[in-house]
Nucleic acid binder design. Structure first.
Length: 596
DNA sequence: ATAGGGTTAG
């Protein structure tokens, strides 16, 4: 366009900058910046926003910052762009800090801002920050935004709190596809296959149209279930609806048939995928499919086929093919592949790879070599690696190595009686009855102590910052936040409790008479500590609370004049304190608890 | 015409 002397306007540069960002084409972006300066468009906020975003997406934080700092006026897009840049850099703290300074500058975050922050909380399993942001969303009155709801559902599900996802989901309008997709994906993430299938049916009944993402989220439900009849029903639905021509969906079907143990059908669907679309993910479904069912030869030949097709194997693929080898006892193939991985791909083997090799060598009657591998591992072997060696020793009746492995396993998994069982088997096999009896005795002792089994799934119940016992939060809030604190607000950190009480009351406009009269009680979380009358009550674990500049969360009980609760409340809601939330009206005499 | 939620592997 420029070369052809077509007239370029602001819309042109604003359209081309996101493309530069997407392609990480920094040089192009810089040329556009030159053009912008030439034309004198730097004052335009849209243009500068697009520039900030472009530089950030190209990984050039310094230039993004410099454009940002040079702006005399910023809007929510400017800030969100830079927040995303911080997230891209893996710096959530910086992102949140920016979010709060944005509020101080008078720029209100919107659903897009929240969605970005929530999404990173989910990815990093950061439930604490996620909950704080939820609270913040409530106070910003953004919690009913469908985008925020979707992000919340996703965040809670990724933090393994599917119950909270459902609570948010319950409140959505249920008209749009995306929240459904989020809750379906959340169920799958939490391995709730039945629940997902039920929801999918509900979705159809409600008349919500499933899209490609819905099916991609939902199909793994059948892999969890591994019910062949149901799987075939779904398969025929996908054929009839034409959705199977979508390769990603076809790959999901391959996985379903593999999990159902129906490799013939799995392979048939796999063959139906165009070669060009057989990416690393497709191969990573079919190879372990054969591996899991003991057909190592096919798994290895598929692996070879994949490499020949020009798809570069990675850690995962090597893991599956090694597992297939160890499962099928293909010693030479497995060792060859292990060396191939080290030599040709510079992939540093992980614990799973070592487990396979130890298992392979050990079970094929080469336990000494297996032990050599363990000794030369670059990191300390975990229970799986020692377990593979112990298992091999059981097969071959190798007491000495068995004892070495068992000793480590007893330390690593003190509650796992299975290791003692295996050791007892070895002793029995070689006629060391007393030692075997000794193992049996220990197993009983462990049973009596009721030591937690090593493989018990730990439920990740949310830990609360604190709860208000006798004056619990109101029901609707409890439903959403489970009674826990819902997060910090911007407020000077070093303020004393007394000053806070005063300033709280001072918010009420002088000309109004019927305002809150006294602060009955005030609890404060400040700079990571929960304080009451300057005494530390406990640690606040949210990293958001010790952000420089000061963030404070307060619980306040205020005495308001009879009949004036609502009025006082509404005023506080719209006041400069702004981020205020009523927890509970204690009695008719109108004392209230606020969380700020 | 600038920011953007749900979506793949062992």
């Amino acid at each position: 366009m420029v070369d052809d002397e077509v007239i370029v306007d602001i819309a042109t540069v604003v359209s081309v900058l996101p493309v530069s960002g997407f392609l990480k084409a920094l040089e192009v972006g810089k040329r556009v910046y030159e053009l912008v300066k030439e034309k004198g468009w730097e004052k335009e906020i849209v243009v500068r926003n697009a520039l900030v975003d472009m530089f950030a997406k190209c990984g050039s934080m310094a230039e993004a910052r410099s454009v940002f700092n040079g702006m005399d006026q910023r809007d929510v897009v400017t800030c969100t762009s830079l927040i995303n840049a911080h997230i891209l850099n893996g710096d959530l703290r910086a992102a949140v800090r920016l979010c709060f300074s944005m509020v101080l500058e008078g720029v209100r975050p919107n659903s897009v801002t929240l969605a970005s922050l929530l999404s990173v909380c989910g990815e990093s399993n950061n439930l604490m920050d996620g909950r704080c942001l939820h609270g913040w969303a409530i106070r910003q009155k953004l919690e009913s935004d469908v985008m925020v709801e979707t992000s919340l559902i996703d965040m809670y599900a990724k933090c393994n709190c599917i119950d909270l996802s459902f609570q948010v989901f319950k409140r959505t309008s249920k008209k749009k596809t995306v929240p459904w997709n989020a809750i379906l994906a959340g169920c799958i993430h939490n391995r709730l296959g039945n629940e997902a299938i039920k929801l999918f049916k509900e979705m159809l009944i409600e008349g919500v149209k499933p899209d490609g993402a819905t099916l991609k989220s939902f199909l793994p439900a059948y892999a969890i279930h591994a019910n062949l009849q149901q799987a075939m029903n779904m398969h025929s639905y996908l054929v009839r609806s034409g959705l199977l021509s979508n390769s990603e969906i076809a790959i999901a079907v391959v996985d379903i048939y593999s999990k159902c143990g129906c490799l013939e059908s799995a392979h048939m669907v796999f063959n139906g995928i165009p070669d060009l679309n057989k990416d690393i993910y497709a191969w990573s479904v079919i190879i372990p499919g054969y591996g899991a069912h003991g057909n190592g030869e096919v798994a290895v030949s598929l692996f070879t086929e994949m490499v020949r097709a020009g798809v570069k194997p990675n850690e995962v693929t090597f893991g599956s093919v090694l597992h297939a080898c160890s499962h099928a006892g293909l010693v030479d193939e497995g060792l060859d592949l292990f060396n191939f991985m080290l030599r040709n791909y510079q992939i540093s083997p992980k614990t799973d790879h070592y487990t396979c090799i130890v298992d392979l060598l050990g079970r094929s009657g080469r336990p000494d070599e297996a032990y050599d591998i363990i000794r030369t591992m670059p990191f300390s072997p975990n229970h799986a690696v020692w377990g593979a060696l112990l298992g091999a020793c059981v097969i071959h009746g190798n007491v000495d190595l068995g004892e070495i492995a068992a000793k480590r396993l007893f330390e690593l998994e003190p509650g796992n009686t299975g290791n003692y069982v295996l050791m007892a088997k070895i002793y029995s096999a070689v006629g060391r009855w007393e030692d075997a009896e000794n193992m049996r005795r220990i197993i009983n002792e462990i049973g009596l102590r009721k030591a937690p089994a090593h493989n018990l799934i730990q439920h990740s119940r949310p830990r609360f910052l604190f709860t208000l016992k006798e004056k619990g939060p109101s029901k609707d809030l409890q439903e959403l936040t489970d009674g826990s604190d819902i997060g910090p607000k911007t407020f000077p950190a070093a303020t004393s409790v007394a000053t806070l009480k005063e300033s709280f009351l001072a918010q009420w406009p002088k000309e109004e008479e019927d305002g809150p009269r006294t602060v009955k009680d005030l609890k404060l979380i400040s700079a990571g500590k929960i304080l009451e009358n300057n005494r530390t009550l406990g640690e606040c674990q949210s990293p958001l609370c010790d952000i420089p500049g000061g963030l404070t969360t307060m619980h306040v009980v205020v005495q308001t004049p009879p009949g004036k609760d609502e009025e006082c409340l509404n005023w506080y809601r719209s006041s400069t304190w702004g981020l205020l939330r009523l927890m509970k009206v204690i009695s008719n005499s109108a004392s209230c608890i606020f969380i700020i």
